[in-house]
Design a protein around this nucleic acid. Structure first.
Lengths: 242, 242
DNA sequence: CGGTACATTGAAAAACCTCAAGGATTGTGG
DNA sequence: CCACAATCCTTGAGGTTTTTCAATGTACCG
């Protein structure tokens, strides 16, 4: 397990965190967020490429991404890998496992990443005092199911170009929420990872990028992407499952 | 909403139901199951092709299938449909919505079907008296996530023949749990529905059935299926995501 | 600076889909 | 009970999408 950082009083807490409108505290009243400060008193740094947790590990906490980004993936008995999600700052990791004893997926940092730790036992304890937190956890878990089902939909019914367009729009929209440019960003994952996530090969992804660029939908140079025609991309994606 | 049947004392209750080792009561001590009798006092008959609930409906109950079978499907804004699951007797429907206010999917009966109704409010109420039920609900919700993720894996990394083999083995295994023959059964869904679920066209599914039959893996006549070589099917599926 | 991982592009092959026709099954009304 | 319609299933031919294999180019890291 990567190194842990105990949070000193001076360190940022949930009640003072810039991400509090997105992360775990979302939907919890201003005057109740301080309850979370008791729960979240640890932070973990994960170097690029290292795992925050592995499939099968005891799931004893939920993690909020403070900076960086993470991919979650499943490995089946035959060794096949399927990436099930890319998570950005302000998003939560470990929700799929927290209902079970053990993690359903492996979480790997796409870049040097820092996550805040919310131990499940502690959460359960303060749930009585902060009913909104209980509700919040339900909502977040439900979102996790929704996310997974949208991916099923994308893999099941969309063609490659629609999947990639939807993927780019999803990243764009989530970066916008964080205050970054929705039209110009750096992808933190490789072509192979994008392909795996979308059920395509890395070559297909690369060709689609080139084609989109040729059609002036975007500009791309390696992992730098600039979306030029969002509306055309939306039309292409044609749907809301991205 | 289809007609409701109030359960009289004479009617079957959870504590007397044959399916109690599979359905909601699973994992709950014999002497606590009677708590569920207070909660589950209604049954609904759904004629073939009719919906138990629709996407977006208020999700106020979980349903246990007493007899028959159900498909769950998503419809996106563009009208595309993706079937996300086929549920058999003893399995639960509505778990993906119960954490939210509203249903994430639509549930449609594949044949005349009867479900038992477990209202969520009532469940929440007795949760304090039956801690095992709380735990049980968590486990079942987690299973729902796992199921969805396995489908993602299947759609993302497997080829058509592997998907169909896995699908057939999944049905077979679940029928076996119910005490039916694992090698001879009647599919309750059309080729089109299987195809939609597996991200294939109905023609591809039909051709695969014919090919499997030619290779003596199974015998098939319309919806009657007889698995002849389970081990070969397992080898073909090659994995455990079915 | 050189090695390694990552990305692009092309050509050929494979997988899967679409369109089309015909056969089987089921249910319904006369 | 039969005939007919409607639905579902099978099979073929041909086309499209996506993959595979291979070669080359580009960026990143020690």
């Amino acid at each position: 397990m990567p190194k842990k950082i105990l949070l000193t009083p001076e360190s940022m807490r949930c009640s003072a965190c810039m991400l509090s409108t997105l992360c775990l505290p979302i939907g919890i009243e201003q005057n109740e967020v301080f309850h979370l400060d008791e729960v979240v008193n640890e932070r973990i740094r994960i170097p690029k490429g290292k795992a925050l947790f592995h499939q099968g590990d005891v799931a004893d906490a939920i993690y909020g991404i403070r900076s960086g980004s993470i991919k979650t993936q499943l490995v089946d008995s035959a060794g096949l890998v399927q990436i099930t999600g890319f998570l950005l700052a302000g998003e939560l990791v470990g929700l799929d496992g927290f209902l079970e004893e053990s993690q359903l997926s492996t979480a790997i940092a796409l870049e040097d990443t820092e996550v805040c730790v919310a131990p499940i036992d502690d959460m359960d304890r303060i749930t009585a005092q902060v009913p909104a937190l209980q509700y919040q956890l339900r909502r977040l878990t439900s979102n996790e199911i929704k996310r997974s089902q949208q991916l099923v939909m994308s893999l099941g019914v969309l063609r490659s170009e629609q999947r990639l367009a939807g993927f780019l729009l999803s990243i764009s929209q989530r970066l916008a929420v964080l205050g970054y440019s929705p039209s110009e960003f750096v992808l933190r994952m490789s072509r192979e990872e994008i392909g795996n996530y979308l059920g395509l090969t890395l070559e297909t992804v690369s060709r689609l990028f080139s084609r989109f660029a040729r059609e002036n939908l975007l500009r791309v140079r390696q992992r730098d992407v600039q979306l030029l025609d969002m509306q055309a991309l939306r039309d292409l994606a044609g749907t809301d499952c991205g």
